[in-house]
Design a protein around this nucleic acid. Sequence first.
DNA 1: TATCCGACGCATGGTTTATT
DNA 2: AATAAACCATGCGTCGGATA
Length: 566
Amino acid sequence: MAPIKMPEVIDLTSETTQSDAVRLLSHWIDLTVPEYRAWAPPECAPVTLRNGPIFPPWITLDKYAGLSPGTCVELHSTGPHRNGDIFYIVHILQNTADQLIVLRGHRLVRARHMGGMLQPRRKELCLFVNAGLDDTRPFLTQGMEDVPAAEVIMPRTVAFVPAPSSGWQLGNATQPILVDSDAEFSCRYVLVSWHKSTAARTTKRAYEGELRGLYASEIAFFTGEPVGPQRVCPMSARRLPGEVTYWDGFCGLGGAAQGAKMAGARVECAFDIDEKACTTFKLNHPEAEVYRIDAHHFAQDDGPASCSPDLFHLSCPCQPWSPAHTRVGKNDEANEAALFVTSAILSKYKPKIHMQEQTFGLPGWHPTQFSALLNMISGEGYKVRWKVADLKDYGVPQKAHLLPYRTIHDAVSRIPDTAPNHRSRITWFPRPREPYNATRTMASCVLASGGCRDHTPDGRRRFTPAENLALQTLPWDYKFPARLTTGTMKKLIGNAVPPVVWSTVRVGDGGADKGDVVMDEGERRTPATPPKDAVDLTLDEEEDRALGGDEGEVEVEVIDIMDMDD
DNA sequence: TATCCGACGCATGGTTTATT
DNA sequence: AATAAACCATGCGTCGGATA
């Protein structure tokens, strides 16, 4: 890729301030592969193929009214789209029966129409792709749209160029961001929204997505130029170094850290405002430096001196975003604000990989705040990938109609009577509840408090803290400080990230044989149904080449947890 | 005083039933 | 058969009265 020169042609300066993001990374990893999703459940193949092969009466034209494949036009858009979208023409189609002309190609949406996902720069476009998980074709192929030629307003020129990555110097707010081109617009980013099915893409919310700068191969596709000589990092440089350091924000009792440890990482640093959470965390992860501190202060001067951990995981409070949040809470404002500490933390600590977890209510119920989160992360130069994950696919015991998923019986039956916080914490119901079959039923959400669905299969009592630990895939002998009440323990456990979600992640050379998750009683097993998109942090050489070897890229994994269905 | 526990909250999405 | 209405269970929750 040619180095960026700086002629003053396109000024992408934002109406808002552009944060200063200077990154110097010695190691980097890219979790995204260009053909991001190539599998499809065969049982739900699309009935009609979107953008399928062109058959009569449709034919393709080389030219039409001064337009040809490879040119861009501005649209007078209809339907859900905003006027002013730019359209990159891939094919010009004509219906020989009625002479209707249709353009097939890619929609480029203005940054200010991206719902807050991108800084609203005036001449910035974003490649906008909807894709279905039931379509096996590459997202660029299936993500094309057909628009009538009548929607065209005028031709436009677009420069497809690389986005600044966290390894680039973005400059400060007073410096315009310039692109080496005399085009009217620049297109540097792509948003890919994945839906469960092609048919659902217009009616349902996206199930997972990706917001990132264009790959070199994609730029080559749009510019029609061959992919230039690429600097391919040797495989060893693509890995994180042998020992992977892990930092944990809003760490709670340490569920996510437990998972990171299982995956081979070294838990180095954590913070939480809650004293009991910090004490519990330190008991179980004594090697870590634990800060009992407010997140905003951690991101400012009171946190550790700035350095670059390999992994940073944030579990911001979920209460304001949860579907179960149906009335105003005492700490709503502080809990909402906690989400927006993300950019400050990324800006200060510059982790090589950032991970974040939230309730599915954030993208589902609060899309504006979710877009703002994507903006914060991508604004710091990270590529963002997010997904609504169903935790039962990761080995968390929850409702499923088909075995073998992990059931309540699987989770709690091996806890010995001598386990701490178990038999001694039992209080029997005066009146038993309705019993249920623990080998066929999955647990309901392990909530931090409240709810009335917390009782054992025999209906005679509530689960003990040890059982709740097991239901959350934490070790049943996880340590707690002395004199914690049952309710406090269950609140800490309910807030935890189930560590088993890390079971498919391998980090660093040292983690190669540590990936299997240790379940109750030392039983070693992997989830019954491993997720189809297991995140392998060590990419192979083929993927490396396909990625174009853009140096200095980093990757963000945002896992949105849709869990606890009963 | 602190903890516990049942009632309450309601948009959402999936399923079933009613109507066209 | 297609569409609309009714129904129903859900959630890293919140509240306030009862109980220890």
